[in-house]
Structure formats: structure tokens, C-alpha cells
Design a protein around this nucleic acid. Structure first.
Lengths: 196, 196
DNA sequence: CATAAATTCTAATGGGGATTAAAATAATGC
DNA sequence: GCATTATTTTAATCCCCATTAGAATTTATG
């Protein structure tokens, strides 16, 4: 499901463009990155990108779409693999973090949704809400089955996802740091800080 | 220290500009917000802003400087008020969150440091590092005094601060939500999710 | 090889936005 | 009220960048 063995030259190049764009957007924001910027990362000309995407807005949209897909994948795998709500929440953090700092990254953080045109914005917002709701559902399940302490699921969701979303702001590709993140974040976000 | 009774007309207007700019930057990013955008929030013309800041880059710089000051204030108060490392970490979250969602906000999130010119970037990065180190020191203290479980302080710092930094992306000024944040975040970030 | 299709480039075009200088208006001190 | 200072506006200027059309080049196909 992740790396189709059958991939057109076109699709491959398109994926490379999306990744390069994601890196740029994470670094300098939507308006802060020019298409020339993205193209340079691939040894291309800005005009060449138009062979793969209709325009710049479409490029961000696709980046966000990919981010939503990957986030959703982590969520679904977590819900499938975890035995109780707590384990599911923990696995979600692990899976999502693994994707973000792994070789499938960089993943664009959806930090400039207002830059999207109305139609796309609505679609992304819906996916985003769906993602949040899925996590809140996991939390509620955990509270119900006694594995998670009683808490405000909305706020908890925001807190946990914020922590994950912020990663690209300080993580820049070091594989050793990636290992540290993967091994530390699930504990931090689900066990808290208190001793015992 | 926070609201000087003696405030020049000039300084007052300048503060209003910084806050309006912070709101815009949080919403649309650095390059995504035009000076005209910021000015409109205050019923001014874009050119008028140049009476208060040298240029746009200076405007972001001042916003980030203010953000760093406020973050630092939270850190120092927490270190002073908390009895052990755990209490200090908890208070830091509380104080910082209170500032960000309170009437002193909006506070600019430092998400586009690369847009700063080298000199300013270095200054902000140093303040940022100082802030992180102060929090890591609190964590280490907590581990030493037995109030915080053994953990990777670097990663824990990144996780906790990321969660806080992301708040402006989904918080838009509702005072009831502000209360929820203040009451939920300290628990979430220091107690974790596990029941018992 | 030769031809067609796929991919990328070169060279415009146009608009938006940062910036500035000078003029206009508002505030303040005497 | 008058003169000085503080504040804001109007009206350019300039540069960057998204976008496009058409040419050039590379790749695939027989």
C-alpha cells in the first residue's frame, strides 16, 4: 500500500516534487517558498513543475492531502493493533511519529490552511476534523475501558497532535535524532512526566 | 513589569501593531501576511507602520522578541514558584499557556525563523536555545530530586514546547476555550494519559 | 534509426507587495 | 491662536514571483 512496485516515471517525479515542496513549506511557509525554490531542490526549473501540478495552490493542497493520508494511516493501524484505548493512543503516537521522521517524510505540516482556496480548504478541514475525531474516539474508548484517566478528550487531542505537528520545526533529517524521537515520544505523551 | 502605567502614545500604538502582526503571522505566516493586512486590523495604512518599525523583517523580529520575553517570564516564574522539578515543569506549562491564551496574547509562534536576517536569526535562536535549556534544566532537577521519571530531557522539552507552540494554530480567542486550555494542559503534559 | 510522446526549458507577461518621499492632517506646548 | 512636532496618507517605484506559450530536448516505441 505504501510503495507501489508499479510506479510511472510521472508518478515518481511527482512524489519527489511533493516531498521537496513539503520540506520547503515546513521551513519557510507557503508564501515564503517560491516554485523556483522547490524546483531547485530537484535540479529543475520552476516552469517544469507545472507539468505535474496545475498551480502552486494545488501543490500545497496535494501536500496536505498526502499528510492527511499518512496521518490517517497511522490512526487506522493504531486502532487496529491496540488492545485497549491506551495502547491505541500510544501506538498512534508511535506510528505517526515513525512516518514523519522516517524515509517517507518529510510530511507537510498543515499550518497554512487559510492559504488554500475555499473548496480545497473545506476538504482538508474535513479530513483534519475526521483525524481529530478518530483520536478523540480512541481516547473516549480508553476512558470507558479504564485504561486512560478521565480527561478532556478535545484538549488532549490538541495537545498530543500539536506536539507531533511541531516536530518538523526542529527535526531536520538526522536519523539518530529520528530514533530518539520514536523511542521517546510515545512515553512522553502517554506516560507524562511524574515519577512512579 | 507587564503593563507600565507610563506608556507613550507611540509605545501603545507600537504594541497594538505587534499584537496585530502576531495574529496575522500566526494565521498566514510571514510572507503570507502583507503589511496592508496588518495595518487594516488597526484602521491604518500600510505605510503608517514604517513610522514604528524599520521594515517587515524588523516587525517579525520584534514579534519573536516579545514571544521570547513572555516565554522566559513564564519559565522564571515557574522556577521560582515550584518546590521540585515536577512542580516547576507543571507551573511552566500553566504560566506559558496562560500568557498565550490570555489578554496579553496573541503571541507570535516562532515558526519562520529562516525568514529573519542572519543577525536577528542568531539572536532569536540563542534566546530560543536558552529557553529550551532552562526547561531541560528543570526536568533534570526533577529527575534528580525524584519527582520526574527518568527521561530524555531534550526530547521531552521538544514535545512539551511543541504542544504549547501549536496552540495558536487552533485557538482563536474564545475565552471559554482559553479556560479549558489552562485547566487541561498542565495535567495532560505532566500526568500523561494512563489511568491511576 | 525514426517518429511520436513525454518532459523540461527559455522567454515573456502581469500583478502584488515592500518600500520611500513628500504632502497632509492631528496633536502638543507656549 | 501659532509654531513645532508627531502621526498618517497619497502616490510613486521597484522587484519578486506565479503563470503561460512555445521551443527544445529527452525518452519511449516500432
Amino acid at each position: 500500500m505504501s510503495q507501489p512496485a508499479e510506479e510511472t516515471r510521472f508518478e515518481a517525479q511527482r512524489d519527489r516534487i511533493l516531498k521537496a515542496a513539503a520540506r520547503c513549506f515546513n521551513e519557510k511557509g507557503y508564501s515564503g517558498t517560491s516554485l523556483k525554490n522547490v524546483a531547485q531542490h530537484l535540479g529543475l526549473t520552476d516552469a517544469a513543475l507545472y507539468y505535474y501540478v496545475k498551480n502552486k495552490e494545488e501543490l500545497v493542497f496535494q501536500c496536505y492531502l498526502r499528510a492527511a493520508e499518512l496521518g490517517n494511516e497511522a490512526m487506522q493501524r493504531a486502532a487496529a493493533d491496540g488492545k485497549d484505548g491506551y495502547q491505541q493512543a500510544r501506538l498512534y503516537v508511535r506510528y505517526h511519529v515513525e512516518i514523519m521522521v522516517g524515509e517517507r517524510g518529510p510530511v507537510a505540516i498543515m499550518s497554512e490552511i487559510p492559504s488554500l482556496k475555499l473548496e480545497h480548504r473545506d476538504e482538508i478541514l474535513e479530513l483534519s476534523r475526521h483525524h481529530s475525531l478518530a483520536f478523540e474516539k480512541i481516547l473516549s474508548r480508553g476512558i470507558a475501558d479504564g485504561s486512560i484517566r478521565d480527561c478532556d478528550v478535545r484538549m488532549t487531542g490538541n495537545a498530543v497532535m500539536g506536539s507531533i505537528n511541531w516536530i518538523p520545526k526542529w527535526f531536520h533529517g538526522s536519523s539518530t535524532v529520528a530514533e530518539e524521537i520514536i523511542s521517546a515520544f510515545p512515553d512522553i505523551l502517554t506516560c507524562g512526566l511524574a515519577a512512579r
